[in-house]
Nucleic acid binder design. Sequence first.
DNA 1: CTGTTAGCGCTTTCAC
DNA 2: GTGAAAGCGCTAACAG
Lengths: 345, 345
Amino acid sequence: MSPVTGEGRGATIREIAEIAGVSIATVSRVVNGRGYVSDATRVTVERVVRDHGYSANRSARGLSSGRTGLVGVTVPRIHPAYFSEIVAGATDALYERDMRIVLCPTLHEHDREVSLLNRLVHGTTDGGLLILPEETPAELQTLMTHGFQFVVVDPRERLDGQVPTVSAANLSGAYAVVSHLLGLGHTRIAAITGPRGMLATEERTRGYNAALAAGGVMPSPQLVVESTFDVIGGRAAAEQLLGLSEPPTAIFAFSDQIAIGVLHAAMAHGLKVPDDLSIVGFDDTIEAELVTPALTTVRQPLAEMGRMAVSLLTRLLENRRLEALHVELATQLIIRDSTARPPGL
Amino acid sequence: MSPVTGEGRGATIREIAEIAGVSIATVSRVVNGRGYVSDATRVTVERVVRDHGYSANRSARGLSSGRTGLVGVTVPRIHPAYFSEIVAGATDALYERDMRIVLCPTLHEHDREVSLLNRLVHGTTDGGLLILPEETPAELQTLMTHGFQFVVVDPRERLDGQVPTVSAANLSGAYAVVSHLLGLGHTRIAAITGPRGMLATEERTRGYNAALAAGGVMPSPQLVVESTFDVIGGRAAAEQLLGLSEPPTAIFAFSDQIAIGVLHAAMAHGLKVPDDLSIVGFDDTIEAELVTPALTTVRQPLAEMGRMAVSLLTRLLENRRLEALHVELATQLIIRDSTARPPGL
DNA sequence: CTGTTAGCGCTTTCAC
DNA sequence: GTGAAAGCGCTAACAG
């Protein structure tokens, strides 16, 4: 009676109805738990359903009810831990609601994402989760206006309109990092940021500046270097910083990947971390704990962000009002082994 | 005219047909590129389709054609790079065929996987990719018998029957590792395997033994320790090996994760890698290059495995014969910085 | 080459 | 409480 031995693709609602000796409408009611059904019939139907491993055909259900039980998720790539953790959280939350995820990597291509979205809109899915989408705020607004329901996770730009978003407390995370470093006695604290213009970059930069100001440290433009969010970019940026006449004693990398690049550069320069150089990352993806020394970093609640997005989306799909259109989840400084007092202190 | 400004959920085939002044059948033909349509009508219809951002409702199409354009992918978890790389390859290959992936993490729970599969079978998807499935060969055979089409990637056990599989050349990969270590002069070569009974473990163990035999080195049972495929397990196993009265000079870890655990243990013991201890991993996931020293490891063509699985599956779905039911993709030894001659040689 | 038509399997009024 | 019946939007014969 293992479910795997179900009658193959077979068993339509009509067959179940015939066997149970009721109408298909009744079977539908039982299966969906909607409408009135006497206990007796319910039990009978449930038994037949179970015995035959019946499960409603999703296409048919989607067609007649307008609900597919599928949520489209666009994401730049699934590979980096950053994204896969968000997706994992979302998938999990969706599973609890008996919904599934249609995964659509966009490879950062705007057009690809647009065409993907178009397909999703037309009867494939009930709604979407757009992780770090490539669309402009205007495009997103349009999408929404045309009736596609979705939630943006980690918006690339600030979305002030009616588009629901979930993000992490980037500013306060960055503030915590710099406060920590200042507390250790560092004053030459560099930042390797993400690409300019991205919300995450801007917010973290603001947190960085605010903390420096609060600590009475003059910011130095030399110490802020832009980079892509990867190891290569981090390494190059670090080389630049370490080549300065007065190099920093601490580097705040805006992602763990960047931080790892910094680590590699430090090694190449014969610097010991954290004795000669303190390094802090951002994200707290698994790599942060794998490298040596383990990285001090800011934990973003990635899985939580995915779950929260699902929660917003399902409320949206039920046409319930969202209490909050823009949710920001707290971040947390995780102190490990890559930070210490500056040399000579 | 941007696709994003399509008419929302709207535009049914009937509307397009009316506007274009043809029958819905003709629109269907144009859209699907099947059947005869005069160039003139084709052009007209195509224009209307484009102007209205029309895209067929997938549920309706699925219901009437029996094809949903969706492939279900079960995977233990999406997070570990090992899995996400396979999924990325598959998604990519599917995208080229205008198909999408319904992602179903099973969290290693057999029942969850079975119930997931059941749902997928019933009209949600056209077929499946089962990555490292929890099912017994018998269950898989049953699934297949009942008409669900799928391909198994990285089978947990040997699947001799009619179930198509894609895997990596585990045996030869392991053989290459041990040959490399022997070539460097090591003779006390330990292995930290994966869970006993898993095909990957068994095959790699056979490769390990075969290479030792070929090198004229007596295998020592003490030097083979079982572990889970993660960092924690690897570290524990390494502790055990390093505590031996005659510890190994090289450790072959059956996964990169395990190898990283070994790296951590080595550090804790004050051993320098590779000078005091050589370490080799398996998989070549990104972590391998991130840690210091970068790991010598065996590259599994993960994305390729995903793509190949899709290729087999689509042939299956088109009812074409598969030339090969069981595909094994080549592995490759990647030599980095974690292996050297044994101390004192 | 093009149009008509019969469902695909299910949900959902609306009667009874 | 339960059943009958009308589609949901599309594909795929089959006519013409």
